[in-house]
Design a protein around this nucleic acid. Structure first.
Length: 580
DNA sequence: GCCGTTTTCGGCCCGACTGTTTTCAGTCG
């Protein structure tokens, strides 16, 4: 009988260990074992190489948080497709109990209680029991708790999951404008995953510096779009808005703003690291202050002071994920991360020749306005009919127009003719090689047949990467946030090929893409692959999306010298000449 | 269950808020 090739993605493994952690939590296992499983899950999600490949190389335990026991479980899964430990566990605690944990304010203890004492084993049974008033008699439960559970279940049904970064920022700015007007509010800042520029945001975290917290707390819960108040305290409140976004606010006096902002920015794991370091120095770190063992407090008005007091370099928020940044900061030096002012060229945009809204001239003027020194016009190739792609004849006409516009704008900006060329389902490109060779810059992108099996779609992209006329792969995985996953690519192989061929990979800045993501961007940069942060602008306002791409690049520890469009025109042009 | 310039065994962060409590447990971040 042929050996079945079993494949577990890091995400699947992570989901599995996450489940184990939660089941153990309900079971009442010691907290550190639970934390170990959850930490391993999180690290697997953030790991740029496939755990299964690491297993084959005997390097599983190089993955942080993966020790002997978890490594053995991954191996057992790979060998047998099953996990005895999990099977035993689900005989003790039904898997469906995990549904209950999705309800706000309902954790493992209550899930266990409801199951043991009321025979509730899934969400539907919980809802029924709550509606029939059968929960209020249980230990530690009352009418209010019961009502909260009903509200929590209803909120769960409304909930649309994580919010894409772009939408989250837009709404944050609306809230910030509103909060700034509240008397006594000195300063409002984004915190949490929003400030860390994660591609999607769970809850919107906001920090306010205030003289008196009561006013801003009251104003927050009375915002006209609030549909549910989950918490309303002296320094912290949380609400749900009518757009399904959940948000929370903290208020602290200005002299404590540094510790408060540091705390509210997270991530949780980053903060745990910092507190460990504080403890080693005889300090205790909280959102309020650093406290010496004699109880005296060190106030930090600025976040920099928090890190400095701990003997660390200030860590940019985008790096605060406990992915080695604290160890780096202990050396006193952080990498010089990419900033938006570094990106002086835009290598990916669309005009009225395909699905853009501006003419070549209008795009050029927009780019000049934003200080760009070079702009590549990259309209779609013909086969992407939906976007009005260009055929070979169109390309010739477009070249003439671009030349004419170049003459008009003079040396204010350098214009190049490129194309975003479709990669066909068989891996061939939409234009023949001689046409590609005539273009100044070629982006190859996947837009269709994204659900091909892994081997096929990987092979398809490899063909494009190997084509010497291709300079850049656009939004490599094709994912669409928040819900549509990218193609099932073997990223290990893709990155190796890009490195070997010197083909660039794009970090598409559009908030519905942010593709490459931070994990692969970091790996790509480490492998020496040239990256490009592009807005993929279809209109004037799209140029403003650059910051989201910058955020993603920074989360990937990307530095200016690793980014094509931060190189400056001369270096970029000589790279192009060498590549082709 | 993981991990190690204080440890291969004994540690593994800190506080706000809520509801049910007569002093605290559960949940969240």
């Amino acid at each position: 009988m042929a050996q079945v090739e079993r494949r577990y993605t890091n995400r699947q493994l992570a989901d599995l260990f996450e489940k184990i952690g939660s089941l153990l939590e309900i079971k009442g296992e010691v907290i550190y074992k639970i934390l170990a499983y959850k930490k391993a899950a999180e690290n697997l999600r953030a790991y740029p190489r496939e755990a299964i490949e690491m297993l084959k190389e005997g390097k599983l335990q190089e993955i942080p948080g993966v020790g002997k026991a978890i490594a053995e479980k991954i191996e057992e899964l790979y060998q047998t497709g099953e996990l005895e430990f999990l099977q035993k566990l689900t005989k003790e605690i039904p898997l469906s109990l995990l549904e209950l944990l999705q309800v706000t304010d309902l954790g493992p203890k209550k899930a266990f209680l409801f199951w043991k004492q009321a025979g509730i084993s899934n969400l539907a049974e919980l809802e029924l029991a709550a509606q029939e008033g059968r929960l209020r008699g249980l230990p530690g439960m009352g009418e209010k708790s019961e009502a909260k559970i009903i509200a929590g279940i209803q909120a769960l049904q409304r909930r649309t999951g994580r919010t894409p970064l772009g939408k989250a920022f837009q709404f944050y700015h609306e809230l910030a404008d509103y909060l700034q007007k509240v008397p006594g509010v000195i300063r409002v800042e984004p915190a949490g995953s929003l400030r860390r520029m994660r591609s999607t945001v769970g809850d919107l975290d906001i920090l306010a510096a205030v003289e008196n917290s009561q006013g801003v707390m009251d104003a927050f819960i009375r915002h006209p779009q609030v549909v549910r108040v989950m918490g309303h305290g002296e320094i912290k409140s949380s609400v749900e808005f009518d757009n399904n976004i959940h948000a929370q606010i903290w208020a602290h006096p200005p002299q404590r703003f540094g510790t408060a902002l540091q705390y509210a920015t997270g991530s949780k794991d980053h903060n745990v690291r910092l507190r460990e370091i504080a403890l080693k120095q005889g300090l205790s770190l909280s959102e309020h202050a650093l406290t010496r063992s004699d109880g005296s407090e060190i106030f930090c008005a600025n976040e920099e002071d928090v890190y400095a007091t701990l003997g660390l370099a200030w860590i940019p928020p985008e790096l605060r994920e406990d992915r080695g940044e604290v160890q780096q900061a202990l050396t006193g030096k952080m990498p010089q991360l990419l900033t938006s002012s570094d990106v002086v060229m835009e290598l990916h945009c669309h005009t009225t020749w395909s699905d853009g809204t501006l003419t070549v001239l209008e795009m050029a003027e927009e780019a000049i306005k934003r200080g760009k020194k070079l702009l590549v016009i990259t309209d779609h190739s013909g086969s992407l009919g939906i976007a009005g792609g260009l055929n070979i004849e169109d390309l010739k006409k477009q070249r003439k127009e671009i030349d004419a516009v170049q003459e008009k704008v003079g040396d204010r900006i350098r214009l190049l003719q490129g194309s975003e060329v479709e990669i066909h389902a068989d891996g061939s490109l939409d234009f023949p090689d001689e046409v590609l060779a005539d273009l100044d810059f070629v982006i190859a992108s996947l837009h269709t047949s994204l659900r091909q099996p892994r081997e096929k779609i990987t092979e398809r992209l490899l063909r494009a990467i190997a084509n010497p006329n291709v300079d850049l792969i656009g939004h490599p995985t094709g994912r669409l946030l928040p819900d549509r996953e990218g193609a099932d690519l073997d990223m290990d192989v893709i990155l190796q090929a890009a490195a070997a061929n010197g083909t660039g990979l794009e970090i598409n800045a559009h908030p519905s893409r942010l593709d490459l993501d931070d994990i692969y961007a970091r790996r790509a940069a480490e492998l020496g692959i040239p990256l490009a942060v592009n807005t993929d602008a279809h209109s004037a306002s799209d140029f403003d999306l650059l910051n989201f791409g910058i955020g993603t690049a920074r989360r990937g520890w990307v530095q200016p010298n690793q980014v094509l469009n931060a190189w400056g025109v001369d270096k970029f042009m000589s790279w192009l000449a060498r590549e082709r």
